[in-house]
Nucleic acid binder design. Structure first.
Lengths: 347, 347
DNA sequence: CTGTTAGCGCATTCAA
DNA sequence: TTGAATGCGCTAACAG
């Protein structure tokens, strides 16, 4: 910011021939001010196109209406939907959102929290899976704790061990288990999983839940049934091709995220495999677009926008300080069977 | 921000037994400082988990590394992709992005620019179509101009009349025209358009371009061939149903955005119309997901992430002040024919 | 090289 | 009710 200096409250006060204090009072509506003075200040402000300097306000002690949100990738519809929920609540509370996208780089996640801390954001929201990595957890805690000690509120979406903060928890494990049971009911007995990086808690939870569900029918999921790739459309595409190359005999494939399922669907189609006639396919998340695929995708529905809304609400209503007991809201996941899964056919 | 006061540079200086200035120099690396002092400051800072107060820094004159981005809807993949590009460049420059989503409300767009102005964001990016409305244009200009006068940089993606700012311009008109010509070449002569609100410049440009393209073959597009709805998936779904209800005899339908085309595709499928056998369908934008639809969508490809990257670059390299001549970068749009469009069949 | 000091723009005491 | 004065935390002169 250079160029001609900004219009300041001082300028407004001068033009209105009142003191700085009076001008401040008018702008903030804190105290009653004589009608005519008020009018003079207001019209001076309008005339000069005055806008308060949020930095000065923040520094002078007025609380700052900014929240920080850190997600893995804005371009992924999952995060876009959750962020949308966050923004709705932020908007209702006239707050500005500083959104950081880490490009799935754990280091960046910590760096951004640090920047947000510098910005004195009144709350920081971590949206997206934690990383299962002791060093990362420690580094994150080293940022989060002093932040909370300084009065910052923190809320996270998804499970973060060792971070005693308010949490909104999509029920990944139970959802995946219910999905497994539903797929078993369709007659399937041979499964494969297209998984994102096992370093993500979310991925682990979904695999574990799915495995547990299969176990209820005595079906086992071995390491060779799991194809790991990145949690993206291209990851799903690659993982599905790996599965094909391995000549895996699954009659039903579970992709741990809808984005991966979308990539897998195309890979299967390109390989001449019909979904669901040759192989059934299910995802997880229920992104808006999966209903428009053909076949439409069976999946586990998560209330994506609510995830964001509730995290934001927790952050807004949170009592500051690390002393406050951390709250946790669990949101149910629901199995939705659509066209991409079919009853297993006899040969 | 309340709770226990924050750790300040003063605290660090005290703990390191140096002056405030020295501590500042060490933290910012501006000047050489004696080795041992440097170490003492650094270890004190680490020990106290010190983070500079960005507000104080900004107020004291250090330029603020924050940019504001205003888009219509983070949940729409178009904006998500453009924003992704913005974030990439912002990240490379260690800048924080304050992202506002207006929920397609013109009023909010102006309110957010005002807030961003208060935040003294070093640049403001307007992503997404302008509104064709004199009052809106005036109100927006009333925010933008004082902002630029104060040294703020502004860049926009898409055409904004009467806002003399740096612009990144996807070639909507030429793209739509080229699409029309390609569709004519497939033998189509009866067309319909599913359009977003005509209050958006982008929508108008695309319709006009399409009409011009048809005109080259003497094909006219009348008002009755245009079905208007919101620029969303649901809007496309509704518009397609309107078209069906009107028993429109188009052999080819152009949806002005891919999101609308996605909704239309489902509507047509639900109505038992095969795409492209019964009717061809084309969109605009080339969202990543449209390749994974079935049939894959013919569309006009825009370099979405580049749109965001270039806007951000313009803002970063921009000379401040309204005096600076505004620059404009035009990005080409390219027709991509996929499975959703077919040669017109004889009956 | 290091320390002292003067603001940055505002909210908020404290006096009047 | 209004005005004058203080300080928020920091950077950037300036002086030593």
């Amino acid at each position: 910011m250079n160029g001609r200096p900004h219009v300041t409250l001082e300028d407004v006060a001068q033009m209105a021939s009142v003191s700085l204090a009076t001008a401040s009072r008018v702008i903030n509506g804190t105290t009653r001010v004589r009608e005519d003075l008020r009018d003079r200040v207001l019209s001076a402000a309008a005339h000069l196109a005055y806008t308060p300097n949020a930095h000065a306000q923040a520094l002078a002690g007025a609380s700052h209406r900014t929240v920080g949100v850190v997600c893995h990738d804005v371009n992924d519809p999952y995060f876009a939907a959750v962020t949308h929920g966050v923004m709705r609540v932020a908007d209702e509370n006239r707050m500005l959102v500083m959104l950081a996208s880490t490009f799935r780089d754990p280091e960046k996640e910590i760096a951004y929290v640090s920047m947000l801390r510098a910005e004195r954001a009144s709350a920081i929201l971590l949206v997206g899976s934690a990383f299962e990595d002791r060093a990362w957890e420690r580094a994150m805690a080293a940022e989060i704790e002093p932040y909370r000690r300084g009065g910052g509120k923190v809320a996270v979406v998804s499970r973060h061990r060792n971070l005693r903060v308010d949490t909104v928890l999509p029920d990944n494990r139970a959802g995946a288990q219910a999905l497994a049971e539903a797929l078993l009911r369709l007659g399937h007995r041979r499964f494969a999983v297209l998984a994102g990086p096992r370093s993500l808690t979310t991925v682990l939870d979904r695999i574990d839940g799915f495995r547990d569900g299969l176990a209820t029918a005595g079906v086992e999921l071995s390491e060779r049934d799991i194809f790991e790739a990145s949690s993206t459309r291209d990851g799903g595409y690659a993982a599905a091709n790996d599965l094909l190359a391995a000549r895996h005999r699954a009659t039903c494939v579970f992709a741990v995220t809808d984005m991966m399922a979308i990539g897998a669907l195309t890979a299967l189609r390109e390989a001449g495999r019909s979904v669901p006639d040759d192989v059934s396919l299910a995802g997880f998340d229920d992104l808006p677009v999966v209903r428009d695929l053909s076949p439409s995708l069976s999946t586990v529905a998560l209330p994506l926008e609510q995830l964001g809304e509730q995290a934001m609400e927790l952050a807004l209503t949170g009592r500051a300080g690390p002393g406050a007991r951390s709250r946790s809201r669990r949101l149910a996941a629901e199995v939705v069977l659509r066209g991409s899964t079919a009853r297993r056919r006899r040969r």
